[in-house]
Simulated assay, not measured.
Amino acid sequence: MHTSDQILKLVNDTLDNLAYDRKPSSLYEPIRYVLSLGGKRIRPVLMLLAYNLFKDDPESIVMPACGLETYHNYTLLHDDLMDNADLRRGHETVHRRWDANTAILSGDSMLVLAYQRIAQCEKEKLAEVLALFTETALEIGEGQQYDMDFEHRNDVAEEEYIEMIRLKTSVLLACALKIGAILGGASVEDADNLYRFGEQIGLAFQLQDDYLDVYGDTKVFGKAIGGDITSNKKTYMLINAFNRANDEQRAELVRWIEATEFDRAEKVAAVTRLYNEIGIDRLAQQKIEYFFAESRKYLAKVSVAEERKAELAAYAERMMKRKY
C-alpha cells in the first residue's frame, strides 16, 4: 500500500517530466505552464488510491491519472477565460499571460492530450474507461452551462444548484475513483460504490468551498474572503438566502446584488450579516455534514478490508479539512 503523499509525489514527478516535443512550442508552452502551477492533484490521487485498494502497483496507471489532471486543468483554463479571471493559484491566467486566442487553442489541445494520456491503459479496459470519461466530460460541460444560466436568475432552487455542482465538480471526482477501480479489476458493485463515494464527497467539498468563501480564514483558505459575495456568484449560501429571506431581508439582498457601485468590505459584511440572520451558516454546515456522512456509507460498502481503505478514508477526511 502507498500513502497519499507517495502517490502525490508520483503524480507530480510524472507531470513535471512529461515531454512536449511537438511543434510549435508556442502552442504547448501554455499547457506546460498550466500544469506546472501545482494544485492539490485531488483527481489523480483519488484515482490511484482507488486502484491501490485492489492492486499494489499504482505507478503502472500514473499516465491515465495524469490525463485526468490534464483534463481538469483544461476546464480551469477555459473557465478562467470565461470568467475573465486574472489569477489562478497566485499566477497569471493563460489569457492574461498570452491572450484569449492562445487560451482557446491551447485549451483545445489540452483536451486532446488528456484523451491521449487516459487512453494509455490496459487494452481490455480501454473502451469502458473512455466511455466513462467521455460521459463525465459531457456532464461537466452541462454543469458549466447551468452555472452560466443561473447567473441571470434569482429563483434557482436548492435542488437545481445541487445538481449543477454534481455535474460541474462531483462527477469528475467520482469518475477518477471509478476509473481507478476499473483498472484495479474491481467488481462492478465496488466500482459503483466508489463512484457514489466520490459523488457525495464532491458535493460536500463544493458546499464547503461556498461556505469557506464567506466564513473561512483568509490565511487558511488561501484567497480573500467574500469573493463570491462581491461577484454575486450563485452559491448554496445566496440561493438559500433568497429562498428563505423575509420581504425586508430579500429587498436588502436584491439592493446589494443590483448595486453597481459599492464598498467591497461593506457589501461583504452586510450580506454575511443577512446570512447569519437567516441561518444560512448553520444550514450549510448541516448540508456539508450530510453529504460527508453519505460518502462514508458508500466507502463502507466497498468489499475490501478496512485497513486497505484507511488511506483513502483519511485522504477524504483531509479534503474536508476536519475530523470525523
Results as ranks from 00 to 15, higher is better:
residue 1 M to E: 10
residue 4 S to Q: 11
residue 5 D to L: 13
residue 6 Q to N: 12
residue 8 L to V: 02
residue 8 L to I: 08
residue 9 K to H: 12
residue 11 V to L: 05
residue 11 V to G: 03
residue 13 D to L: 03
residue 16 D to Y: 00
residue 18 L to H: 08
residue 19 A to I: 14
residue 23 K to Q: 14
residue 25 S to W: 00
residue 26 S to D: 12
residue 30 P to N: 09
residue 30 P to V: 06
residue 30 P to F: 04
residue 32 R to L: 05
residue 32 R to V: 00
residue 33 Y to C: 07
residue 33 Y to V: 05
residue 36 S to C: 05
residue 38 G to K: 00
residue 40 K to V: 11
residue 43 R to Y: 10
residue 44 P to I: 02
residue 47 M to N: 00
residue 48 L to K: 02
residue 57 D to L: 06
residue 61 I to Q: 01
residue 62 V to Q: 03
residue 66 C to S: 10
residue 72 H to D: 08
residue 73 N to A: 07
residue 74 Y to I: 04
residue 74 Y to A: 14
residue 74 Y to T: 02
residue 75 T to D: 05
residue 77 L to N: 05
residue 78 H to I: 13
residue 81 L to R: 04
residue 83 D to G: 10
residue 86 D to L: 14
residue 86 D to I: 06
residue 89 R to A: 00
residue 90 G to V: 11
residue 93 T to E: 06
residue 93 T to W: 04
residue 95 H to D: 05
residue 96 R to M: 15
residue 97 R to S: 10
residue 100 A to T: 12
residue 101 N to F: 09
residue 106 S to C: 13
residue 108 D to C: 09
residue 109 S to P: 01
residue 110 M to E: 10
residue 112 V to K: 06
residue 129 V to K: 04
residue 137 A to S: 15
residue 139 E to V: 03
residue 140 I to T: 07
residue 145 Q to F: 11
residue 148 M to P: 02
residue 149 D to R: 10
residue 150 F to N: 03
residue 152 H to W: 09
residue 153 R to S: 12
residue 154 N to D: 15
residue 154 N to V: 02
residue 164 M to I: 09
residue 166 R to K: 15
residue 169 T to G: 06
residue 169 T to P: 06
residue 172 L to G: 03
residue 174 A to M: 08
residue 176 A to P: 01
residue 177 L to W: 00
residue 182 I to P: 04
residue 184 G to Y: 01
residue 186 A to V: 07
residue 191 A to C: 09
residue 191 A to W: 04
residue 207 L to W: 04
residue 207 L to G: 02
residue 210 D to A: 11
residue 211 Y to C: 07
residue 211 Y to H: 15
residue 214 V to A: 14
residue 214 V to H: 02
residue 219 K to G: 10
residue 224 A to F: 02
residue 226 G to M: 05
residue 226 G to L: 06
residue 227 G to D: 14
residue 228 D to K: 07
residue 230 T to W: 01
residue 233 K to R: 14
residue 234 K to P: 01
residue 251 A to Q: 14
residue 252 E to Y: 06
residue 252 E to G: 01
residue 255 R to V: 01
residue 255 R to G: 00
residue 257 I to Y: 11
residue 262 F to I: 09
residue 263 D to C: 10
residue 264 R to V: 15
residue 266 E to R: 11
residue 267 K to C: 13
residue 269 A to P: 07
residue 270 A to K: 13
residue 270 A to R: 11
residue 271 V to P: 02
residue 277 E to K: 14
residue 278 I to S: 05
residue 280 I to Y: 02
residue 283 L to C: 09
residue 284 A to H: 04
residue 285 Q to D: 06
residue 285 Q to H: 09
residue 288 I to C: 10
residue 290 Y to H: 15
residue 292 F to I: 03
residue 296 R to V: 11
residue 296 R to Y: 10
residue 301 K to L: 15
residue 305 A to L: 13
residue 307 E to I: 07
residue 307 E to T: 11
residue 307 E to S: 12
residue 309 K to Y: 08
residue 315 Y to G: 03
residue 317 E to M: 13
residue 324 Y to E: 12
residue 324 Y to L: 15
residue 324 Y to K: 12
